[in-house]
Amino acid sequence: MFAIVRKELADCFNSVRFFVLFLLVLLASGLGLYAVQQGIHTALQQSQAITENGFVFLAIFTSSFPGLSFLNFAMVITIIVPIIGIAMGFDAINSERTGRTMSRLLSQPVYRDGVINGKFIAGLITITLMIGTAILLVAGYGLRMIGVPPTSEEIIRLFFYFVITIVYGAFWMGLAMLCSVIFRRAAGSLLIPIVLFLIFFAWMFLGSVFVPVDSSATINVQIQQLNLQETLLRISPVYLFQEALYVLLNPVVMGLGVISSAQAAYMVPNPLNLGQSLLSVWPHIVGLISLSVVFFAISYVVFMKQEIRAT
């Protein structure tokens, strides 16, 4: 299996695809840094770091362009990681078929699952490298810009963010790999994950379309409607990931869900500690991990049962 991992990695690092994806990563980091330069002040205010209650360093990752509050480094990563994941997985298996290398490969002393596992691991390593590069680039240059070093808790939060992003990338790669097992043509296995990504991405903004909140209804009904909205939104893995990183990177966020102004009045304006932040997004993390595992497992089973005739 490690021979396959080695070969896949070597192939990948020599490919044009890798080069293009790396440019994309650099572009994302550049955008993120530009956002830091433009919006760090607002971000510091929002995260209450300015009142010495929040975390200064994490604000780098959530600073957004003035006027475009959703466009920050974390959001750019939310968009490009699926692209990287899909690019790593969409032709993993069917390229072996169209290149007629499958039967030659499988007649070597390797188990059949070694092939798909090897490809998945190689993809995971590549995704990790890319995400790691992006985060370190922004962290490094951001550090130069603001001159405030991260605290140990910030480093741990960043690490969790890093891990969740890899899981998120693995989910998209697993989905693309499943398509590459099912579809013989790379065009099909590329289009379907991309369309799914666009749907899930747009899904995030459609909450009020699914369940319109009736402002004339009683407060209980409104809370019910908001909760239903949120549950529906969480079908989208993109939304799950967004919520998870939002809580992790903004310690000042008290939690997810509806909070009435009456409750808010009693809230202590301190940032949550790491354990509590993690606790509130634990279902999200578990959800993302299980989605990745489920998609990989399905592609694994389908691949193991497939006939490998060349024709």
Binding site: D11, G99, R100, T101, S103, R104, S107, A310
Partner: peptide, 9 residues
């Protein structure tokens, strides 16, 4: 084993 239509990378 040499398959009928052999392919290479």
């Amino acid at each position: 084993y040499l398959p009928e239509s052999v392919g290479f990378y």
